[in-house]
Amino acid sequence: MNRVVLSDQVLLNTYLSGDQSAISQLIDKHRKRVLDYIRMLVKDADVADDIFQETFIKVIRFIDEKRYTDNGKFLSWVLRIAHNQVIDYFRQTKQQNKITESDAGYDILGTMKFSERTVEDNLVAGQIEDDVRRLVETLPDEQREVVMMRYYSGLSFKEIADLTNVSINTALGRMRYALINLRKKIKENDLVLC
C-alpha cells in the first residue's frame, strides 16, 4: 500500500484549520526520531517516554497559542523543546552522574528561547542557514558528496555506497566525519543553530 507522506507544513496547516487528526499524524511522523533523541540523553526508556509525552504536550500548546511560526524546521524545533525538557529533568533529579548541564547545553544549540523569536531572530536564522550551507561547501570532497547525497538528494546509504563505488561502511564513516567536521566548523564560526 502506498502511503502519501504529507509535509510538516501541510499537516500543521491542516491541524490549525480544525482537523485534530493532523496533529496525531505529525507526532507519529517524528515519534521515533524524537524518542531516539531523548533516549540518547537520558539513557532510560521509561523516563524517555515521560519526557516524550511532556514534549509533545508543550509542542501542541505552543502551536495552539500560535507561538510556532513554520520555517521548515519543525523537527529541529521539537528537538529543542525535547532538549530543554531533558535539562529540566536533570535539574529536578540532579543526576549529574549521567550528564552534566554543560554537556546537555551544547554550543551549537545556544540558549535562545525557541518560543520568543522576533522578526530579527528570523533574519538571523536565515543568515545562519546561509552560513551553514557555505560551511558544507568547505567540507572535503568525499564528505561534501555524501552530505549532499543524503540531505539534498535523499539517498539511502546503500545507494550512496553504490553510486560512489565504496562499501556501505565507508559511506557511513564519511557521513560521521562530515558531521563531526561540520560541528567543529559551526563552533569555530560561533554559529548557533536556530
Partner: peptide, 15 residues
C-alpha cells in the same frame, strides 16, 4: 549533538 545536527541539516536541505 550529531543527532540534532543531522535533523537540522535534513530540514535545511529539505530531505
Amino acid at each position: 549533538e550529531l543527532f540534532f545536527l543531522d535533523a537540522y541539516l535534513s530540514e535545511l536541505f529539505g530531505r
